[in-house]
C-alpha cells in the first residue's frame, strides 16, 4: 500500500437559501426548501426528470452532487469509479414521519411504496449512481455532527486499497425545516489538501 497524498478538487455547499461551489455563490433564493431546491435544480441545469418524484433528502443530495460532478467534467459514459460516502444526523426521518402519518390512523390508512422506498438514507446515493452510472461503493453513515475524521479515514482507505479512483463525500441532512449539504471530491490531485483540518475548514466556510 502506497501512501500517496490525496487532494480535494472541488466542494459544494447548499444551506441558508444559498448554493456555493468552491466558495463562489451560484444561486440563491429566499423561500421554503421545496421552492428553493426546485429553482436551484432548474437554474443549475441538473436535468433529471425523476427529481420531481424524489423526497427532499434525495433532491438535496442529487442537486449538490450533480453541480459538483458536472463542474469536474464527470460524464456517465465514462462510468468512473467514484465512491459515494455520505453522512447526516437525521437519516431519512423527514420521510419516515410522512410514512408514519400514513399508518398512524387506522381509519385513514394509506401507506405508499413511493414514500416508503425513501425511508432509507442511502436511496439518495442510488439516485446519484443511476444518473452518473457509478458502479462504485455507496455507504451512508449517521453522526450527531459533521465528522471529518471519519470521512477522511474512510476515503483514504478506499483510495489506498484502489477500491475507488475518487471519493465524493460529505454531509446531506434534511430535518423538518432545516437542510444542509456539504460535499467534496477527493482525488489524486486537487486544489485543497486532503486533511482533517482542511475538510473542517471548508465545511465551516
Amino acid at each position: 500500500m502506497t501512501k500517496e497524498s490525496l487532494g480535494i478538487s472541488s466542494y459544494i455547499q447548499i444551506k441558508d437559501h444559498h448554493i456555493k461551489l468552491n466558495g463562489k455563490p451560484l444561486f440563491s433564493h429566499e423561500g421554503a426548501f421545496s421552492e428553493f431546491i426546485k429553482m436551484g435544480y432548474k437554474q443549475c441545469g441538473v436535468a433529471y426528470p425523476k427529481f420531481f418524484k424524489m423526497d427532499d433528502l434525495s433532491k438535496l443530495a442529487l442537486v449538490a452532487a450533480d453541480i459538483l460532478l458536472k463542474h469536474e467534467g464527470v460524464q456517465p459514459e465514462n462510468e468512473e469509479n467514484i465512491a459515494l460516502i455520505f453522512s447526516n444526523k437525521a437519516s431519512s426521518l423527514n420521510t419516515d414521519r410522512s410514512h408514519q402519518e400514513s399508518i398512524q390512523n387506522k381509519d385513514n390508512y394509506y401507506p405508499s411504496p413511493a414514500v416508503f422506498v425513501y425511508t432509507l438514507p442511502n436511496i439518495c446515493l442510488g439516485e446519484i449512481s443511476i444518473k452518473y452510472k457509478l458502479y462504485s461503493e455507496n455507504s451512508f453513515f449517521i453522526f450527531d455532527n459533521f465528522n471529518a475524521e471519519h470521512l477522511y479515514h474512510y476515503s483514504q482507505s478506499l483510495m489506498q486499497s484502489k477500491q475507488a479512483e475518487k471519493v465524493l463525500c460529505g454531509w446531506v441532512d434534511v430535518d423538518n425545516d432545516t437542510y444542509e449539504a456539504f460535499l467534496y471530491l477527493v482525488s489524486k490531485n486537487g486544489s485543497y489538501e486532503h486533511t482533517i483540518n482542511e475538510i473542517n475548514k471548508l465545511y465551516k466556510k
Partner: peptide
C-alpha cells in the same frame, strides 16, 4: 470485501 452499486434502479 467490496461494495458496488447497480446504478440501475432504487427499489
Amino acid at each position: 470485501e467490496a461494495s458496488c452499486n447497480d446504478a440501475n434502479h432504487i427499489s
